[in-house]
Computed example of a mutant assay.
Amino acid sequence: MRFFWFLTQLTTSAFIISASNLFINIPAALSLFSKEVTQSQLFYFFSYLIDFCHYSILFSNLVISIQRAFVFFLRNWTNQFFESKAIYIWLASIYIFAFGVEYALMSSNCQYGYDKTSKNYQLVCEADNRGIMKTVATPAGIQFVETLLHIVIPLFILIIYIAITARIIYMKGNTLSKNETLILKQAIFVFLIFQASSCVFLFAQYFQITYVAAFLVKRFVNTMEILAGAATPSFFFFTSKEIRKLVSTRVSAASSLGPSNIQVRAARTLE
């Protein structure tokens, strides 16, 4: 069930992204908000909140892949590194790293936007020059963080899953836990469904696209995050025996207590 601890955190971030996109980005794209609203501090707060949740999802996928790697390669150390107390450290590290990335971008006043000159998405950093915001060169540290988020970490996760898949094929003749294999499939599904929008956005940063295509890219990214946020808990609920067993046990317990509670209340009423 440790895997579902990380899944809960990931699903929470996906829900916040979905809700923020639904109430902030989509109305802004449809020009339902005035220019003053889109430039307000509240709008920027939700924009940074979406980015923070997006980074937390990436780090969640990273931790999930590491936990799966321990299960298949370092089974004897799995409980030691992912026991109850250690899980809180892993969960906290996800938010700490996500906040660190967000703080680095906010402190340099960097945001992604479509550049009409280069005709692609770029990370634009601005500096306050006596009350006038001026575009400056992207700091080397921000460039390193950008490369780490968009290329290094997703590639590292993919390599882990490829290595695990190769090990499963190698161990095909041995007895494998169907539950562990199912959880691995679920972890890969989560990684791919959330990485799909990131790949499209990464493509839009390195290749020239029209303004209409840029609008479609942004809508695709937002829509995929909303769909991923809705599909992920549904997928795990219907495919996880642990969750279904837990829910059915709770429902059965509540149902069995129902008549007895009614009888107790009735007896108290007679008294």
Rank of each mutant, 00 (worst) to 15 (best):
I151T: 11
Y170S: 14
L149Y: 08
R167W: 04
I169C: 12
P154Y: 00
I160K: 00
S177G: 04
A163E: 12
L155C: 10
K172L: 04
P154M: 02
T175M: 06
V152D: 04
T175R: 12
V152S: 05
I164Y: 06
I151R: 13
N174I: 10
L155D: 03
S177C: 05
G173R: 08
I159R: 07
L155W: 11
I164Q: 02
I169F: 06
I151K: 10
G173P: 00
H150K: 12
T175K: 10
N179Q: 15
L148S: 11
I168P: 00
L155F: 14
H150V: 12
L155I: 10
I157V: 06
L149E: 14
I169D: 13
A163Y: 08
I164S: 01
T165A: 15
I162C: 08
G173A: 06
M171N: 14
F156C: 13
I164C: 00
Y161T: 03
K172A: 09
F156Y: 11
T175L: 12
I160Y: 04
T175H: 11
I159Q: 03
L149P: 01
K178C: 05
K178G: 09
I162Q: 03
I153A: 05
Y170F: 08
I169W: 06
I169A: 08
L149A: 13
L176Y: 00
I164T: 00
K178V: 05
M171F: 07
N179D: 13
I157C: 07
L176V: 09
R167N: 09
A166N: 14
I153K: 00
F156S: 10
E180K: 02
H150F: 15
I160E: 09
I164R: 03
I153N: 05
H150G: 08
E180R: 02
K172V: 07
N179G: 10
I160R: 01
P154D: 00
Y170M: 14
I151W: 13
M171A: 10
L155H: 05
V152A: 09
T175N: 11
F156G: 10
F156D: 11
G173N: 09
L148E: 04
I162M: 06
E180V: 03
I162N: 10
L176M: 09
N179K: 15
G173M: 04
I168F: 04
V152F: 03
Y161F: 10
L148V: 03
K172I: 08
I168C: 09
T165S: 15
I168N: 03
H150D: 13
G173Y: 08
N174T: 12
N179Y: 15
A163Q: 02
T175A: 09
L176F: 01
I164F: 01
N174G: 09
K172G: 01
M171G: 07
